[in-house]
Design a protein around this nucleic acid. Structure first.
Lengths: 245, 245
DNA sequence: AAATGTGAATTAATTCACAGCC
DNA sequence: GGCTGTGAATTAATTCACATTT
């Protein structure tokens, strides 16, 4: 007897405007950054090619990405920067204000708290928390640092929906659990651990060591290629990674 | 006349061991972290399922990823943690030592410099540089902070191959150009700008605002879903994002 | 003439599901 | 019996290339 395959599964095809691909969402902030930079420099209109260079992607990719939001460009002309800033902001949810709490006010927490204009609009740091009694009560970036014991009170009262975990690895999961317990559903984790969370909570992890290790891999690959070419192996082997013909 | 399509393109199929997919490379550091954690806790062997939970991925994905490195597991048993640590380290190039320079010793630079055990092996911070005369000469994490004017000398003498840009946005491109001029081919960029570099230089960007904006997007999506379900629309719409039947 | 928006084609990544081995 | 390793199937992302619009 043949094992039955899963049935054809009627997939609702992507509704226009909704269901933007993850890869696109991850790039929208880069476009936003490029656009605000252009606006500040007095540029009012830009082609997909210009925007692409400014954002470090290809123009085809940029156009495809933007097409998921709607038709906000003008053929033969390009995109109106300010208008596009608004559309991307709206799509990312930056027309509302998301309240952020930072837990862990060491060097990294300080850097994060002081990161002004880190989102010009849409995100406000409204609470700082730390376990160190010497730090509690201090004023950082205009906010008083609260004790960990007050986490629930502060996070709930200030209606925080995004938490930043900048604590040592050892306390990260505990802090995460407490944040989630207060209704926080988005977490940015700088601690080098994998946080376990319920399915409705999004976690993004930023990890220094990970990034450096990825760079190390590419360094190794490049070093190996240099070695090969230096030993007189046909250059064509190397060149083939660059040209397609 | 019909436009000729590009010819069939004879693609060299992936050589064993070489050409690991980017997505896999990006996850190897997470596996490495999970494994060293297990080793420290005295665990000598782990199944793909255990490792997957610890790393926040599915077991199928983990097995597929590891299969690109070779067959380092034992059927019916799992993976020998220490052995796998070694194999992944080797693949990432962490058996050699990559020398790192950090440019910009503000709060973030401090945090990065003090990030001990940030790679236990394979990566060493060997130079710190800053533009602020008050910071130059200070001792941070056991290293003297050098003036920006000495960048070329220090980076060349200490044979740095990876540079970390932790400066304000305004000076990031200039710093980047100077690093690249000294032969640095891997850059980790914390400044909120897109660095323009030659094709043989790898840049990885870590951006707070980007991460928070991505979280904001998902918060918005979840809030919208809650709204919809509260208004009495069929729960099935919501449930369909969780179950496949 | 210039540049968007987008189907179609291609390539990459993920998931399934099970043969093969311990 | 349990778990890896992996082809095959599926889904996602990227790239191509051009019709369409200003």
């Amino acid at each position: 007897m043949i094992t039955p395959r899963r049935p054809p599964l009627a997939r609702a095809h992507r509704a226009p405007g909704r269901g933007i691909p993850d890869a696109t969402v991850a790039r929208l902030p880069m476009y936003l950054r490029a656009l605000t930079g252009l606006v500040e420099r007095g540029v009012s209109t830009a082609s997909s090619e210009e925007l692409a260079v400014e954002s470090g992607v290809t123009s085809a990719k940029l156009r495809k990405d933007l097409s998921h939001l709607g038709s906000y460009g003008t053929r033969g002309v390009g995109y109106e920067c300010e208008y596009l800033v608004y559309q991307i902001s709206r799509e990312l949810g930056l027309t509302q204000d998301w309240r952020v709490a930072i837990v862990g006010v060491g060097n990294l927490g300080h850097a994060l708290a002081n990161y002004h204009g880190f989102a010009s609009r849409g995100l406000s740091v409204v609470a700082l928390l730390d376990a160190d009694p010497d730090v509690v009560g201090e004023n950082v970036a205009g906010l008083r640092v609260h004790a960990m014991a007050d986490l629930e009170t502060v996070v709930t009262e200030r209606d925080v929906s995004i938490g930043v975990v900048a604590t040592p690895a050892g306390s990260a999961q505990d802090v995460c659990d407490r944040l989630v317990g207060c209704g926080v559903t988005g977490i940015l984790n700088f601690a080098p651990v994998t946080l376990q969370v319920p399915a409705d909570v999004d976690v993004r992890r930023v990890d220094l060591a990970t990034e450096l290790q990825i760079l190390a891999f590419h360094e190794q690959r490049k070093a190996a290629e240099r070695d090969v070419s230096r030993r007189g192996v046909k250059r064509a082997v190397l060149a083939s990674t660059e040209v397609a013909t």
